[in-house]
Design a protein around this nucleic acid. Structure first.
Lengths: 124, 124
DNA sequence: CATGGTGGTTACCTTCTGGTGCCTATGTCC
DNA sequence: GGACATAGGCACCAGAAGGTAACCACCATG
């Protein structure tokens, strides 16, 4: 079985499950994408905020802090005059751009399939 | 820019954001994968349960119900004797196997990057 | 002086996620 | 008869995710 069909590979800490954590939560993948596509791996807080419609200041900050903690981005504070902060993709961050783009590209090519998907939320 | 860097493409309902909903939540992608890889698109409840270490009965049922509601799988009840239920990937479900495998394959090839990722959870 | 932009922080609140446990009903095995 | 499996349902509960709103300090503009 060369397609990962071995059940022993399906432990709780296997690679597939770990990558899910990246997408599972919040805005992380969108920040990765934005940093990569729009700004060559670096951008300031305000720019990111404006590039991600719908995100709140709190969530942006929180996401950036978490990404910094996990080593995906680095934070650079410039002259204190008007506190200018720039975030940059780390080398590790650059690597994780690939799966993000893989997925986003697929989505763009298959929006018809996405259209056919029910909302999958059913209350009560 | 040919890489989707146009900000107007980044609306709240764009394809990339919609595909995220599939991965974002729960066990959906793992059920898709299991159904596809282990059982050629069809499997019974108990088999799925045993193939997904860590899932609870409640979450399995709930996930299957949601996937049925969104059209990814179909439910087939056999003879009522011992209620044998089989779930099958629909044609739409088969399409969504592709991005799942794309992502899982990447993860398997890049487990070193995943190892280098911090846990990204930082409480208070 | 009031407003707005920079880059945050904090408190509060709601929703969603997901877990356990116990119940059903049937049939078979020991 | 009692245990087990198959396939759930339902109640209860904890915690995480994530949103809103208000606040901070600083500077510039009108």
């Amino acid at each position: 079985m060369d397609k990962g069909s071995d059940e022993t590979e399906w432990r709780e800490d296997c690679s597939p499950r770990r990558i899910l954590e990246l997408f599972s939560t919040k805005w992380t993948s969108m920040v990765l994408h934005t940093l990569h596509a729009l700004h060559q791996g670096r951008a300031r807080n305000g720019v990111l905020h404006r590039s991600l419609p719908g995100i709140s200041k709190k969530m942006l900050t929180q996401t950036l802090r978490e990404m910094e903690a996990s080593g995906l981005i680095s934070r650079h504070v410039a002259g204190t005059v008007p506190p200018a902060v720039e975030y940059r993709l780390t080398e590790l961050g650059h690597r994780f751009v690939e799966p993000v783009e893989l997925l986003y590209d697929w989505a763009r090519r298959n929006d018809d399939a996405l259209d056919r998907l029910g909302s999958r939320k059913m209350r009560s």
